[in-house]
Design a protein around this nucleic acid. Structure first.
Length: 202
DNA sequence: AACCAGGAGAGAG
DNA sequence: CTCTCTCATGGT
């Protein structure tokens, strides 16, 4: 067993199955509707605590605008107002509109899932407001693709555990993907445990 | 009452 | 490629 595998075993032993927000993100199988929620939340959750994301999601659900189809039809001002609690609402409304339109233009979530993975990741990264972490969150948690999501918690944990001091995103992702079984269920569980564990260490 | 939360874009050096 | 600034709300 290598260090990455030992890390997983250790986190699994300490925290068991991911709870809270992760009940949806790690749920399987997910309905199409739930996958769209994860996509929406992946934008809303940028530099924002989960409570505020929930307030924004509640607004969207109350307004019956909690689908990519509905969001794509909203104007920027209306969407901004609905997601305001999540912060950075002017940019996030713009990002969400672009993402919703992109997915619809591709023919919906099911069609997205059938695209070649490399091409899909590339196109997501080309969208404004979607960087590597957000793109990979969407690929891993919504579209169930075997792409490990790296974030600051992940980087700091590897540093703390003296596994590596690497800072380059792609290289960090490669460290995980090269050392554990290629399985999106495992990736989801592992990454969620990293975040849960990191927060518990505060 | 300052400080922070699963980031990303834009500009500068 | 690596800094630095900006964007904003709500809970401690």
């Amino acid at each position: 067993m290598n260090k990455i595998q030992e890390l997983y075993a250790d986190l699994k032993k300490k925290h068991g199955h991911p709870q809270g927000q992760w009940l949806l993100w790690c749920k399987r199988p997910k309905t199409l509707r739930e996958k769209e929620w994860v996509i929406i939340e992946s934008i809303l959750t940028q530099i924002t605590n989960w409570r505020n994301v929930q307030l924004a999601m509640d607004n969207l659900k109350r307004a019956r605008s909690d689908s990519l189809q509905k969001i794509a039809k909203l104007n920027k001002a209306k969407l901004s107002q609905l997601i305001k609690p999540a912060g950075f609402y002017k940019q996030k409304s713009d990002y969400l509109l672009r993402l919703a339109k992109f997915v619809l233009q591709k023919g919906g979530v099911k069609k997205l899932e059938k695209m070649p993975l490399d091409k899909l990741r590339e196109e997501l990264l080309f969208l404004k407001g979607i960087g590597r972490e957000t793109a990979d969150s969407i690929l891993l948690y919504a579209l169930e693709k075997p792409i490990f999501t790296v974030d600051e918690y992940t980087r700091r944990l590897l540093e703390r555990e003296k596994i590596t001091n690497e800072t380059d995103y792609e290289k960090l992702r490669e460290i995980f993907e090269a050392n554990i079984r290629c399985d999106w269920r495992l990736y989801q569980d592992f990454h969620a445990l990293i975040v849960i564990h990191s927060k518990s260490q505060l």
